[in-house]
């Protein structure tokens, strides 16, 4: 059953002198509670795709459906997490976490309690009254995660949220996010250029090619890997096999990109 559907979505960027096609005829779907990764080189329009799904951008062509409804009329909550934490430096951690409810004018005492218990869950209960500058990168990204989760989004969009972190912190955060998403049964779309991250977190991987961005290939992650924690997945023999396959496809893509474009025009 498809929950989030992209139907022949294309998107363009305009500048004074020219236009570029950022996304070309993208179609895929995501099931409920599924974790899908969009994997691809930089410039393949991954982030644009997330902006489209979040509703911040409108697709130039094609349709995006959530639960069978058009984006604009759907009232399903979507959470968005960026590459860096982008916590507001002039707000305390707790105020940062509660910015979503504040914007929506739904601030309540209960919600504050919930924020505190969520912060506790990720080990930040002692820094709730501190400012972001007093926290490490990993802690800040965890706070940003709670800021995204507090509004209880059904769909979570993750735009390379681990890429600015050191390797150890990144692994820990992957485990945390993966556990939280399973516990709260969320649907998630992760954008990444890290093959290992994609395999270890997702149920399905969509490989994209660039100029313009389009869906190149799709991989089902073996069942054995899906419920494993991201740390253990990396040690599984099937992890290596899938990694090699994706690696080979990525390399091949680089070689064939130019002839493909010529054929089409």
């Amino acid at each position: 059953m498809s929950y989030l559907t992209l139907d022949r979505v294309s998107h363009y960027y305009f500048s004074k002198k020219q236009y570029t096609e950022a996304l070309h005829n993208i179609s895929f779907f995501v099931r409920k509670n599924e974790f899908v990764s969009l994997l691809g080189p930089s410039g393949c329009g991954k982030s644009t795709l997330l902006s489209l799904i979040s509703g911040m951008l409108q697709p130039a062509e094609g349709e995006i459906l959530i639960n069978g409804e058009k984006m604009e009329i759907s009232d399903i909550e979507i959470g968005y997490m960026l590459q860096q934490d982008y916590l507001f430096p002039w707000k305390t951690i707790i105020d940062n976490v509660l910015i979503g409810p504040k914007i929506r004018k739904r601030q309540t005492g209960e919600l504050k309690q919930k924020a505190i218990s969520l912060l506790k869950e990720v080990g930040l209960e002692n820094v709730a009254e501190k400012y972001p500058s007093e926290l490490s990168g990993g802690m800040r990204q965890r706070a940003a995660l709670i800021r995204t989760l507090i509004t209880e989004p059904e769909i979570l969009l993750l735009d390379e949220p681990f890429s600015a972190l050191d390797f150890q912190t990144k692994l820990k955060l992957e485990v945390l996010v993966s556990d939280l998403l399973k516990a709260y049964q969320k649907t998630a779309v992760l954008v990444t250029h890290d093959i290992g991250e994609a395999i270890s977190m997702s149920d399905r991987i969509i490989l994209m090619s660039s100029h313009p961005g389009r869906v190149a290939k799709m991989y089902e992650v073996p069942v054995e890997l899906r419920d494993e924690s991201p740390f253990l997945v990396r040690k599984h023999p099937k992890y290596g096999r899938l990694f090699d396959k994706i690696w080979a496809d990525l390399n091949q893509q680089n070689q064939t990109v130019n002839p493909l474009e010529e054929n089409e025009s």
Binding site: Y80, I99, I103
Partner: peptide
């Protein structure tokens, strides 16, 4: 972008 994701 963060704020707009909350429909600010």
């Amino acid at each position: 972008k963060v704020l707009r994701s909350f429909e600010a």
